[in-house]
Simulated scan of single mutants.
Amino acid sequence: MNELEFVTRHRRYLHQHPELSLHEFETTAYIAEYLDTLNIKYERPLDTGLVAYLPGNSHHTIAYRADIDALPIFEENEVDYRSEIDNVMHACGHDGHTTALMLFVHRCKILAEQGALPHNIVFIFQPAEETGGGANRLIRAGAFEKYPIEAVFGVHVMPFEDEGRVVIRDEEITASATEYRFYLNGLSSHVADKEQGHSCGEALQHVLSQVGQIQQYHLNGLKRNIVHMGHFEAGEAINTVPSHGYLEGTIRTYDVKDLQIVQQQMAKIAESVKLLFNVSCEVKFEEGYPPTYNDPQLRKHVENGLEKAEFEVIDKPTPYLFGEDFSFYSQLAPSYFVFVGVRDEAKGYVTGLHTAHLNFNEHMLIRIADYYEQILTTYSEVSK
């Protein structure tokens, strides 16, 4: 089978069999079976996902990461490889990321058999990028302690850029993503005796108003931040004072200090609710993803690799405002993450990530493997 047949077969199988974060059991088994056919050693530090290793001909060890999970989205593409699982879809291109890395593994195995693999390689097939912080889970599980990794590389498909273009940026390229939740508890009463209750409806209005002012009055206006209110509710019945209230949303920042400011203000808002409305209020933060930081010392490796793979390199002036858990790999070693354009207007491949119509041409996965291989073969040249 040629490489286009390879990527088409594997990507479409994965696309038809998507699995949600931390439930990628069949996906993990599929990758493991493939690695077994190549006689490549791997370990499973978590219940899903795996980490493989190939020794090369130098003391350098570099890592490549692909995420393997899907999203809770009902696919609307009318294709013969449409998701077979209702309300689960590879709507973020992780089926493509996984397939491109599988192809690269195949190429590296051939080089190793020829005694020509330049460096030691760690292949990361990571679970739970969308929710659950799979990268951080792998790190905490000690998955990489035995490997002296010098650099970690990763890619993401980007449907808003044309095929053949790759977006790069030194330092922050994606934002931190932190979820927050306010829990309000008051005292219910009949509407006829509303003064006897402690209304979470009134208190929630206050919380909504004050959270909405954080970005306006407490953050530097020259920086790009998002304090988003995604869902809120209060009350139990049409004729009673609301005894419960709830608000949830997400915070996106590039600067850790800005995130701290937002969290501090939210804590003050929660404290003020008790004083003003006699309603208890607690705010909780879900450990989020830090900004994805591209180490400038790896830029030459990345640019050389992309150019030799015949990509057009686009330097992004500002970061994206979405989160990405590749960010955790900077704890291991310098890392660099790029966005590979897959937009094809002629075929209608123009919808964004996390949409029910995301699709792309499989030949782009070969080009991603080309980029990976160029990084591999030129790494020591640039590092001198």
Rank of each mutant, 00 (worst) to 15 (best):
Leu184Trp: 01
Arg181Phe: 03
Ile121Cys: 04
Phe144Trp: 04
Asn185Lys: 15
Arg137Ala: 14
Leu138Phe: 15
Thr174Ile: 06
Val152Lys: 06
Ile168Val: 15
Pro159Gly: 09
Val152Ser: 10
Arg169Tyr: 09
Val167Asp: 07
Asp162Lys: 15
Ser188Tyr: 00
Tyr180Trp: 14
Ile173Ala: 05
Phe182Lys: 00
Glu129Pro: 02
Val157Gln: 05
Leu184His: 09
Arg165Pro: 02
Gly115Val: 03
Ile124Pro: 08
Asn136Thr: 08
Asp162Gly: 01
Ala151Ser: 15
Gly132Glu: 02
Phe125Trp: 05
Val122Phe: 09
Thr174Trp: 05
Arg181Pro: 02
Gly134His: 05
Asn120Thr: 02
Ala141Gly: 10
Arg181Cys: 09
Leu187Cys: 08
Gly134Asn: 07
Phe182Trp: 04
Asp162Ile: 07
Ala141Arg: 05
Tyr180Cys: 03
Thr174Asp: 08
Tyr147Pro: 11
Gly154Asn: 02
His119Trp: 10
Asp170His: 04
Leu138Gly: 10
Met158Ala: 08
Ala135Trp: 04
Phe125Gln: 05
Gly186Trp: 04
Leu184Val: 09
Gln126Glu: 14
Glu129Gly: 03
Leu138Ala: 06
Val152Trp: 10
Ala128Ser: 15
Ile121Lys: 08
Phe123Gly: 07
Thr131Glu: 14
Val157Met: 13
Lys146Val: 04
Pro127Thr: 07
Asn120Ser: 14
Glu172Pro: 10
Leu187Met: 09
Phe182Asp: 02
Phe160Ala: 08
Pro148Thr: 10
His119Thr: 11
Gln126Lys: 10
Phe123Pro: 00
His190Cys: 04
Phe144Ile: 02
His156Gln: 14
Ala116Gln: 15
Glu130Leu: 13
Tyr183Ala: 00
Ala128Arg: 00
